[in-house]
Design a protein around this nucleic acid. Structure first.
Lengths: 237, 237
DNA sequence: TCAAAAGTGTTTGGGTTACACCCATGG
DNA sequence: CCATGGGTGTAACCCAAACACTTTTGA
């Protein structure tokens, strides 16, 4: 029986993983950017990322986790793939470069610190990306794609585990959602949709009284007990 | 000023493009498969695909188009990226292999003929993929992902251009949609949603009379005049 | 007592679903 | 005239949205 021929006579592209780390800070959806000290796009901001290492990474997702660990010194929750992009003129360092883009929604208190080959990290509101100086490479477009996918998720009330600081009140969760969607949500509708989903489990006897207000019930996330009826793509209309 | 260093000391993965070509034949959603004559997975069926050629392909999508041309002898309409997968044990021919998956919804009369390195092509109902013999590699999972994305599209009434044979009647379009979704659709609701969208433009005076029935109005696709109100993810609820 | 946020009841409106019914045609 | 699929009218129903209102707390 002939051994499986390793037919790989073709040059392979330069493959990277880029991270779109999103969080709500100061009531706005922001993205974590890394300052570029070297060419290309020197002195601009871009997404943290790194080269795929086939000797270290068991899978694409594992590569994303490794890059997060190396560059940001942390483990990202709810990592999800956004897309893969690639072309001949994406990166002047290689004749042909592709990037697999992952995104993560994190809590605002996430403690990202500059790791290997990273000098500075900074949060930047996604709404301001189009203004001011551009991002390196095609990273602005990648951020937009990631934001779109996150907005769909939140609009459908599929809250990524590890994102919501638990326990939480309905108002806290709604305000976070509003920041991500960039639009106000109806207080009553939000409450009733969340109630109907069965995803929020009340913590008996536990309330949060912040100021001169009526204290609010605290909740933690559970599994949805009923299928969401709308906008989740599951139900056939 | 130092020239941008081509820092690529790392071995790169084996990168392929796989095609999930879907169509409705015999009232069922089917996928176009290619018979494997060689190892690995010899004698099994798998997705048509090919190696990314950085000397030939300007982008990932261009690579998908080239592969379609070479393997299937045709130009695929409404090509869309599904996902990228990759890992160390995906393909015995290489130590680390990744695939970028594209999908296309085509008309049933599509004339795909076996091209380079393809011996036989065959349509297979997606519902039967789990039964009978398995597909090569992780291709069954890739088909499922592609089907999911197509179902979302059709459920939201975003009909890919070039998919619907024009002109068409509402019933024809509904029956195609039902085959893709794998579930019956309400006749009246389908008509009214399509009316409301303004996407279907009536062809004045043109009807189709098939049998002993009242002839049906013929339509062609246009641009949606009003934003779809539900399930399209655009509107914030 | 007042302000402010939490939480509930009710109504309205838009879209889906279901059902009844008419229309047009060939057999 | 009858079976069959095309197409319309009407009512029920579900859910989001808007509004009013009560509750609970600290100042």
């Amino acid at each position: 029986m002939p051994a499986p021929a390793t037919t790989k006579p073709y040059p392979m592209p330069f493959v990277r993983v880029e991270l779109v780390v999103l969080s709500v800070l100061e009531d706005r959806l922001q993205v974590l950017l890394s300052h570029r000290e070297e060419a290309p796009y020197q002195h601009l901001w871009g997404l943290p990322g790194g080269v795929l290492r086939i000797d270290l990474d068991a899978s694409l997702e594992a590569a994303a986790h490794r890059v997060a660990r190396e560059r940001l010194n942390l483990t990202l929750p709810n990592l999800g793939q956004v897309a893969a992009v690639g072309g001949a003129d994406r990166d002047p360092r290689a004749p042909w470069a592709m990037s697999v883009v992952y995104r993560s929604l994190v809590q605002p208190d996430l403690d990202a610190t500059p790791g290997k080959r990273v000098q500075a990290l900074s949060w930047r509101p996604v709404q301001e990306l189009d203004r001011a100086e551009p991002l390196a490479f095609d990273h602005a477009a990648l951020v937009h794609q990631a934001v779109e996918s996150v907005r769909r998720e939140i609009a459908d009330m599929r809250f990524p585990p590890g994102w919501v600081p638990e326990p939480f009140t309905y108002s806290e969760l709604r305000i976070l959602s509003e920041a991500i969607l960039g639009a106000p949500l109806d207080k009553v509708t939000f409450r009733r949709r969340l109630d109907a989903s069965g995803m929020a489990l009340p913590l008996e006897g536990q309330m949060r009284g912040g100021g001169a207000h009526r204290p609010a019930q605290l909740y933690r996330l559970g599994e949805p007990t009923v299928a969401l009826t709308k906008a989740n793509g599951d139900k056939v209309r």
